[in-house]
Structure formats: structure tokens, C-alpha cells
Design a binder for these strands. Sequence first.
DNA 1: TAGATTGTTAATCGATTAACAATC
DNA 2: TAGATTGTTAATCGATTAACAATC
Lengths: 217, 217
Amino acid sequence: MKDNIHQVSIPVIKRLPRYHRYLEELKNLGIVRISSKELSTRMGLTASQIRQDLNCFGGFGQQGYGYNIEQLYNEIGAILGLNNKTKAIMIGAGNLGHAIATHIHFDNRGFDLIGIFDNNPAVIGTKVGGKTVMSSYDLEEFCLKEKPVVAILCIPAEYAAENADKLVSLGIKGFWNFTQYDLVHRYQNVAVENVHLSDSLMTLCYQVKEINNSCEE
Amino acid sequence: MKDNIHQVSIPVIKRLPRYHRYLEELKNLGIVRISSKELSTRMGLTASQIRQDLNCFGGFGQQGYGYNIEQLYNEIGAILGLNNKTKAIMIGAGNLGHAIATHIHFDNRGFDLIGIFDNNPAVIGTKVGGKTVMSSYDLEEFCLKEKPVVAILCIPAEYAAENADKLVSLGIKGFWNFTQYDLVHRYQNVAVENVHLSDSLMTLCYQVKEINNSCEE
DNA sequence: TAGATTGTTAATCGATTAACAATC
DNA sequence: TAGATTGTTAATCGATTAACAATC
């Protein structure tokens, strides 16, 4: 590992999961080593970028040889913290929450989903991904006892602010935010990862329009 | 509108939906005008950036006054193409597809979801968001007749490549890709907007770890 | 007119790419 | 040893920020 003095930039971090995916695939193909050049061709980026990215964390390669795929795969997994079992809770078990809870493999991604909460009586008590949905009234007691670190927000935007404030006061250090609401810049020392689905869809709308325009010309 | 000669950069496009959201909120509060300075404070960015971003598309403001909120809101909506009714189909009506189909307001985002397909007999024929799920066998005929422009991929990664190839051959010009699979760089003149949920979660994993580290020191 | 605030040009900052000496 | 490929420094590119003249 290298000096942790200046922290790694966001663009680099965002590329790590993609490296991890490609390396997993190569590993499963039984390939042992790869050069930055070869990997760059497969991934559609430059060899320079790969080497720069990896050297933010240390020298994982070997001159004249390249990188050992399995080793690099494990290193990146460790950097991301995928072997952790960070306790996570989900707030909101509607359509989206339900899908996220059952669709995502939290254990492979460094998390342990330990509780799901909702305030809708029709949902409380039902099973979602093998877990019984709890009432929001029991959230505080649960947090004091279980000390979850991350909260997944799958609630309507209008409840996001109050819920987030409460959760931070209960010790939450990170949000996976599926809400329209802008959580970033609100808290000190709290990580926020936004999944703004509507924003993403609008971006696609623009792009498709642009392609249509350029084709018509 | 301004010269369309050099196209607008991706970072700018990605910020447009956020502007749109803030302006909608301001509009609903009944506020009529806003300066780039005031908006920048609310959004946590610089006034310069806002003015630069907006001037990619034309001069919507007025010196000494600022921007008319309703007008700017409408302009950005028009730039994004939110008034379009681009025909979209969904491939895969599992947990995630079901949630996306019912959770997203496609009509406000420039799209019209006209068909949902799956190859699971247990799902075919059921209703999702008021629409009957069709069999994948009928996809080709449907596309030839209805000419959808965008496909939403909510299928396992291993089926992504074959489905995407087929859909492109059937005239699809854009993907909203919820698959692990990397669609970008595969096709000419096809827009791809990725929602890599697992990647996003891994990024959060890293960030939470970093916060913990810095707090312990 | 004076004050405010834009549109736009210039300066800065950061991220990506290229180059190459180090070394396996 | 010679060839290959890294780690790292230097050059380039692009995006963000600052400055200011134009103008409402």
C-alpha cells in the first residue's frame, strides 16, 4: 500500500468496480496474467489510465510481466472493502425497496442488510428477501441496539430530509440514496451515493434526441 | 438557441436534470426570478458554472435581473426533451423491471412505455403497471409494428449482449441499461445510459470505509 | 443614471495521456 | 542478456473558476 496522505479522486474510485468486474471475468476464463495494454483494449480505455489508477493504491504489477489477474482482483476487492460486512438497513419497502432488497447481493458488496423498515401497515410484517419488514416506530430502538452504519433510502423525496437527519443522529455514516432529494453537502463525515433514476432517464432522453438530430442532418 | 456546431459535454448534460429539479421546486414556491449567485448557493456549486452551463444552450438570462425561473425551467425541459413521447419497451419484468416500470413516471421524462417483455411463463400475461407482460417471442413482431426507440434492459447480465444486438437490429437507438454488462462502445449511433447498481454500492462501500479510517486517526 | 447581474473571455485547476527510465 | 511492461514524471487536454466588459 502507498501513502494515504492525499486521498484518491472520485473518478478513480468510480472506475474500480468496473476493473473488478473485468478481472473477475478474466479470472473465470482461467487467464492468469494481463498487461495494462491488453486490459485497456478490452475495456476501451488507455493503458496509461489503468496504470495511473492502480498506482494510486500501490504497485500491483511487475515490469516485463504485467499484472496477476487473481491477485489484482483480490487487491481491488480489498480496496473497495468488499469483504466487509457493514451493517445496512433499508428505509422504505415499496416497489423499489422491495426490488433492491431482493435483487442486490449485499454480501458480495461489503454489506449485510440487517433490517427493513416501512410505515405502511399493509407492508409491515410481510417478508421481503427473507426478512420481515419492521415498523418505522421501532427504528430508533433497533439502531441503538444493532448500530447499523449505512441506510438505503427508498422513500418518497418529501420524507428524505427528516429521515436522513434522524438516521444521522442515530449514527448512520453512509446513505445509498434512491430519493430525488439532494442529500450531499448536508452532513459532515457522512458518505452519500446517489442513484437518481429519473435524472439518469432524462439524460438518456437528451442523448437519444441528439442522435436523432445528427442522423437527420 | 446557439450554434450546435460543437456538442455539449457530458458533465454539463448530467447537471441539467438537477437544475430542472431545483427550478421546479422554486417555481412551486412561487418565486419568479433568481440570480446565478443565489441558485449556486442553494445548489452548492459556483455561479460561474451555472452561467457557463446555461450558455452552452443560449442566453436565457438578463443582465441586472437574473433568470426567470419558469422560463428557465421550461427551457431546460425542452433541451432535455421531456415533452417528447419517445416509445420505450422494457425487457425483463423481474423484481427490478417490475419496480422500474411502476416507480418511474416515464411520461414526465420524455418517454412512453409501450411494452413489457419477459420469457418467464410465470410472468407473461401478468399485469405490471397496468400493462400486460408479453412473451419475448412476440418482441420482433411488436418492434416491427410499433417501432420503439428505447429499450430498458432489466435482464441478467448473461443475456444482455444477445438481446442488445437483436434490439439494435430492430431499430433501437437507446438503452437504459440496468445490466452488469458493458454496453457502451458496442454500437454506432446508439445511446447508452448505464445504471450499474452494484458498482454504485461498491463505491459507497469504499467511501464509508474511508470515513471510518479518517475518523479513527 | 447607478446597481446588479449576465455572457464571455482568460486563468486555474485537475484529470488524462504520452513518454521513458527502471526493472523484472 | 534482450524484450516486455511496469511505475512515474512530464505534457496535454478539458473542465471549472475567476474576472470583467456589456447591458438590462
